[in-house]
Design a protein around this nucleic acid. Structure first.
Lengths: 209, 209
DNA sequence: CACTTCCTTGACCGGACGGTCAAGGGTGCC
DNA sequence: GGCACCCTTGACCGTCCGGTCAAGGAAGTG
């Protein structure tokens, strides 16, 4: 499982560590995890190999740390964006918009998430982080269902549907087509809200549907 | 770009080639592309290393062929499923259902698609295949918009929203949670159709929205 | 100054990997 | 049989990679 080394670090040490995480994340995303060697990372930073193994016990551990920190920060941003918005549907909207913004700003990390999902050693770690975020979203959806705003379907499925739209649109429209995150977010929100609310016909209640 | 070797193969040769593609695809998906060595592939098939390099000029070329053939087959299945259904909205539904079924049956290939997206050498190849499939879907969406069944939004965005829902739900609900493809497809179809059709309020025409 | 702790260097190691190739077996055709 | 062609073998090669470590510099503390 590769437990993280927790050395006591000075200011200087924390800065070096940050450099390594940052630079390695970019190289891993651009070049692939396996094709990027430790030698290349330290050369890119102009330091000796020993520096790497002073801060991390292996390349694998470094990747794990990158993953963990990225997931942590994404969640932090989402929580902050949602803050204390009372309406669950609007919380979901804000979550989508914030995700889109964040992914636009950290596309290299998104690539690493994708890669992590394809290797067994990392997919577990990724999944644990994902489950936390999904848990958050599921709560909002459940609340929306309770309030009659959202169709009464398995909240987990709905959550993943929203997640799928957001991630895929971010990747294709923002990264590949170079679209503006805000506009893509508008489209994603529109699609998801209608998808969540359900068919118009029975439309009995709810202040948006 | 690693052009495929086109040798003239006998019956026996074609069978060997198929074995290599099949087995390597499974190992790549289970173990990762880079961590799976050519030596391991040929050992798993009980043949010498020369066999590999008789049929493929490099490991990279083999992976490219796996990708190409998988995309080709997925598209073939989708086209066949849609066949000559006249209603565009229903064509999309059938496409979603068929994708879900196919992904459920070929989850290892899905993993390889994901991996390919993370390495520059392969992402181009992947994208070219994706564009073809997206082009198909966009046509159906455009037709739906023309018929007033689908909201008048950028068809490419709508297509990718649907694709995102389908792929993500397949991965999470079918692969990870072990849900039944048919039920997941039901949920995906419901979500996407409402997402495509748009908000209920103005609801002027169309026989489903 | 001495002494400790934190950090850095880069040559080095064992092993694994992708790829090559000379040699040979098998099959079918004349 | 003789010959051509398709396929297979596995030892071998050069390279590169993750990781180690003895040695030494810098910074802080007394």
């Amino acid at each position: 499982m590769v437990r993280p080394m927790d050395r006591r670090l000075t200011q200087r040490g924390r800065e070096r560590r940050r450099q390594l995480v940052e630079y390695a994340a970019r190289r891993f995303a651009e070049n692939g995890y396996h094709p990027t060697s430790v030698a290349e990372i330290v050369a890119g930073l102009g330091v000796g190999k020993g520096v790497f193994y002073w801060y991390f016990s292996s390349k694998e551990e470094l990747f794990g740390e990158i993953l963990r920190e990225a997931q942590q920060e994404l969640r932090r941003c989402q929580q902050q964006a949602i803050a204390d918005e009372p309406d669950p549907l609007r919380r979901i909207e804000l979550g989508i918009r914030e995700s889109m913004r964040w992914l636009g700003d950290h596309r290299h990390l998104f690539t690493l998430f994708q890669f992590a999902a394809t290797e067994e050693r990392f997919s577990g770690m990724l999944r644990r982080g994902e489950e936390v975020a999904v848990g958050d979203a599921v709560r909002h959806i459940k609340e929306g269902i309770g309030a009659g705003q959202i169709r009464d379907t398995d909240p987990t499925v709905l959550t993943h549907a929203v997640l799928g739209v957001t991630n895929h649109l971010a990747r294709v429209m923002i990264f590949e087509h170079g679209a503006a995150p805000d506009e893509v977010a508008d489209a994603a929100v529109a699609f998801c809200l209608d998808g969540l609310c359900g068919p118009p016909e029975p439309a009995p209640a709810g202040h948006r549907c």
